[in-house]
Design a protein around this nucleic acid. Structure first.
Lengths: 235, 235
DNA sequence: ACGTGATTTTGCAGGGTCTGCATTTTTGCA
DNA sequence: TGCAAAAATGCAGACCCTGCAAAATCACGT
């Protein structure tokens, strides 16, 4: 994982815009090419040529060839995280998380084009799918920390200030993490994953958001004995 | 992913035993070496030399260098799957899954040695952790199919016979998969993941199995509003 | 407009990963 | 023992990825 953007201040110069453009060009070139000729025949040389940069430059933007296929929704987790922290305090952690994720999914559904292609790529390449899921999972830990932060807001430890990011401190944060935040994060992440996968396959049958909310509620409420009343013939 | 073992029949010849031995030797050499000098300095050449085979042979056993670090518990998912299908029919899908997974975790805890080292490797390498989790997730889909099979046992479609494994048929199976099996599988997989991660960090504080059962029950019962009564000072 | 320092791009060398193919070695069995 | 199948091996070659230093580009003050 490479830092996508660290400093939010004074970041709109010609320089920055060009970097974003290059990055986007690389992703787009890669994804389109992968849909056409398959991931394994999509070499770094080809991608960078299509994007109009040198092969060496590719690695200034991505740590590995595969990252360009996996990191498509990289900013999402950060957005969910902050939405979660800023949500009204009346909401329970679960509700806050559900809303934050629903909003994010909604926005994703807008930019269908790229996501559709991306989904296509992942569907054809189990290897990459696994990697992608894994990447999203790493987010699950972050998410759990955010949940913990929201719950124990004001706690002397871990409030705000995520600056100190040494290996050791990350380790300590993880140690101090109770089980409950992990459960909440797991429910959210599972719901997103199931909803998105379901949506990729049953394209256009329903909005991602709806599937997500249904799945989320089931998970959050606990799984009843018999299969949940297979939602009436809505298609 | 490389097929670990397909035919269960007539598989105990000297030949087969040797293959298993070589495989194990490679894994062990790799993991030990990774703990000592770090994953990135553990080259294929070094691993195969330590295991006493040629570098080329390594790739007869693993599709990539990283697989040797990720595929440590590869047979687990198959065992859980069959335990799930063979469990007494009185048990609900959830109960059957919980028991099957608990048994598996128990057995894993026996061979502490290798798993401890493996956990150590993953802890130090987020990249690999993500991959490993991703690999286990791929199992989640299989798991969901098994759950579906158990529920709709006798269903004209998809009963037994997983022989036809063309791309197309796999696709069709996934399409026909309802949401409920996915939820059950997600609960199980999440519980395992959280339990194992928790266990890796808080080593020796509690048996994996206990953490797993606690997590599983919470997830299956639904998440209550307030954090679940932080389990009383049981250690 | 011009110079200067900072940032980014690029080429290049070199080591590691992984595959296909032909050859040799080992194993299973009559 | 001899033969056929399976596995291990060597080798060539393509690709991935990284450090380093030179060149191109950008930001900014004068």
């Amino acid at each position: 994982m490479q830092h996508v953007e660290e400093k939010t201040a004074a970041t709109d110069s010609w320089r920055e815009r060009k970097k974003r453009a290059t990055r986007a060009a690389l992703v787009e070139a890669a994804v389109r090419m992968a849909v056409e000729r398959g991931v394994e025949h999509t070499t770094v040389d080809a991608i960078s040529e299509a994007a109009g940069v040198s092969p060496r430059t590719f690695f200034n933007y991505f740590d590995s060839r595969e990252e360009v296929f996996v990191l498509v929704g990289a900013e999402s987790s950060a957005r969910v995280r902050s939405a979660l922290l800023e949500a009204p305090r009346e909401l329970s952690p679960l509700e806050a998380l559900r809303d934050a994720m629903a909003v994010e999914l909604q926005e994703i559904e807008q930019q269908q084009e790229l996501w559709r292609l991306h989904a296509e790529v992942l569907r054809r390449s189990p290897e990459l799918l696994a990697r992608s899921i894994g990447a999203h999972m790493a987010d699950e830990l972050d998410l759990a920390e955010a949940v913990a932060e929201r719950i124990g807001a004001g706690s002397p430890l871990f409030s705000g200030n995520r600056a100190g990011n040494t290996e050791v401190e990350a380790e300590q944060r993880r140690r101090a993490l109770g089980l409950y935040p992990r459960l909440v994060a797991a429910v959210g992440a599972s719901a997103v994953r199931i909803a998105v996968e379901h949506w990729c396959v049953h394209q256009e049958e329903a909005a991602v958001e709806d599937v997500f909310l249904e799945v989320f509620d089931h998970l959050a409420a606990g799984l009843p004995e018999p299969p949940p009343p297979a939602r009436s013939g809505r298609r």
